[in-house]
Write a protein that binds this DNA or RNA. Structure first.
Lengths: 335, 335
DNA sequence: ACTAGCACTCGGAGTCGACGAGTGCTAGGA
DNA sequence: TCCTAGCACTCGTCGACTCCGAGTGCTAGT
């Protein structure tokens, strides 16, 4: 149905249109890609491609532009993801290796991705479900206020305020030791189970406080799930100010909505996922494409990717997203 | 020089222009503000105002629009900052009071500000210089990797990776105790001084590790200064897509540059600071205005504010920024 | 000091036609 | 059967032109 030349024509149309944002005509194709046929032949091929829904004419007497379906076909069948250049790999590793903690890793990664793709980058905080608790701490601040701190094996530090009443430093030290004995080295689920028993093993006068603290730690363990999404490179949308024709308003709106972004990234696969235009569930993104991948360690994955106009350099975006996902996974595993 | 009526005319021009984004003519003013004079009289006044540089004509036969100088005069002399409505106050307190930690306070505040002003909101992380160290912790993760954690009296938790070599848990417990004895209750400066002595008070075989750890804690204390800036409400720029006529690209670019934003906010005063158009040092912001205020507790202040087109509802923005700064200061002081 | 009247300016919207890129179709050739 | 040359046709873009009206500045009069 689609012979090699037709595929070449489709590829040429997409490539040129991505570069120039202008409809591509038959003559331009034979010129720039020296196919050894005449424009008329290409026109016939284009008629077929249009019939099949891969390309369309914005106006009767204009060249063709790719449809969502065309991009999809291109991504599925015509793309060979080229690996990044050595310089790019180098830049990535250098940039990521300087990070001092998890927050920093995330910030750097998302900025890096925005920069190498010249698109808006989004990244979900790592999901740390598989991590085990390394330490629990109770820190008095002032009056009866205090802070519960939980550190896990991946270096993630979570905290929550707690009311300590009039407990003495000795009392807190005791509680702290008991807590650490109970949960250190356990995953969230088993730690939660142990916490339930904690108050019963305490002297009666400490049970109230112990229960409050156990509840606080439980909250921390539970609240680990709804991770945040970080965005970078919104300035890159500037270059497309006329791209998202109905102004880029809806896209900006969407980028502010954590929930939508989380959902987007939740669909990321271990390789590379591409959602093109209308394929996105969210109406605001019907003129946008998302390229995302999963990253993480062990069996817990979170998403990361870029958002841009459907007219996007998919091979490049896919390569960059995949590379960054791999490198950040490695950094997480090591650090 | 400028009698009452001329001031009224200036105020009318600014008010109408902010609403409609269209040049304001003499007839429109007498109609909408029932001054009891004829359009011709207003025209004479406008001629004077233009001579003085407060307003200008975009085209020979168009109405007038305010200049930066006109806005400046308006802000300095004509604005009476109305307090917020009760509903607004209520919304602010409710929204902020649900925060669980400092990160959360910042995130909520900046979103809130973006929402009530319908502009882009920016907020510097609180400067915690006056806080005292509450606890230092050393947490082994795996292999020789570990994490240093410093908690201060405001509940801010800072962390940094550290290489622990082959130290046993007992060794770490000893170091931990010594560290806490040394610096708990001290401000950053005096804590830093004590840290220098720490290794000399240790058994010889621990001095190396002790020095490494002391250095890490010092880093944490020192790195507290270059605080981050958080941005929210970029989607609100959508409504001004034709406002920043040369596209909003430069503004978006600037919003991604932490350094510039920090500098902007560094100038915030305890009441409200307004920078209009060209008054901004950064060239990218020459068509934008910044309304900022300082917030904080004790004697340490950080900045928070909004960025928008020079055509901005200054009275409203000023009132909102001031109110939010005050409420968040209160929340910080309490929590 | 204000106002009525008037000539003038100039941007915006609408019309028109030339231009050209690109098409689809048909007839002829490998 | 597939490709090509040629050609008539479509239609969007661009510049030139006109018209309209909002808004002005000025002058003379109250």
């Amino acid at each position: 149905m689609l012979d090699d030349r037709k595929l070449a024509v489709l590829r040429a149309i997409i490539t040129d249109y991505v570069r120039s944002r202008e409809p591509v005509g038959s003559r331009a194709i034979v010129d720039r890609y020296h196919l050894d046929v005449s424009p008329a032949t290409v026109r016939n091929d284009m008629a077929v491609l249009e019939e099949e829904g891969y390309i369309m004419q914005p106006h009767t007497s204009a060249g063709r532009i790719p449809t969502d379906k065309g991009y999809r076909f291109f991504v599925d069948r015509l793309v060979t993801v080229q690996p990044l250049t050595n310089a790019e790999r180098k830049a990535i590793t250098v940039f990521l290796s300087g990070a001092v903690d998890i927050d920093d890793i995330v910030t750097r990664t998302v900025r890096l991705l925005a920069q190498v793709t010249s698109q808006v980058a989004i990244m979900q905080y790592p999901i740390l479900g598989a991590a085990v608790v390394r330490r629990v701490d109770i820190v008095p601040l002032h009056d009866s206020r205090g802070l519960l701190i939980v550190v896990n094996s991946l270096g993630k530090v979570a905290q929550r305020p707690v009311n300590l009443g009039a407990a003495s430093e000795e009392t807190l030290a005791l509680l702290r030791d008991r807590l650490n004995e109970a949960v250190t080295g356990l995953g969230p689920a088993s730690a939660a189970a142990r916490l339930a028993d904690l108050p019963t093993n305490l002297p009666p006068e400490l049970r109230g406080l112990g229960a409050a603290i156990a509840a606080g730690v439980l909250e921390i363990l539970a609240s680990d799930q709804p991770t945040r999404v970080v965005v970078a490179g919104i300035n890159n949308l500037g270059q497309f100010s006329d791209e998202f024709e109905t102004s880029l308003r809806p896209v900006l709106d969407t980028l502010e909505e954590q929930v939508v972004l989380l959902k987007l990234l939740g669909e990321a696969s271990t390789d590379v996922m591409v959602r093109i235009g209308q394929e996105n569930e969210h109406a605001n993104l019907s003129t946008a494409s998302v390229v995302a991948s999963a990253y993480g360690v062990d069996d817990t994955w979170a998403g990361l990717g870029v958002v841009g106009p459907t007219r996007m350099d998919y091979p490049r975006a896919m390569a960059s997203v995949r590379a960054v996902a791999r490198y950040v996974s490695r950094v997480l595993a090591e650090g």
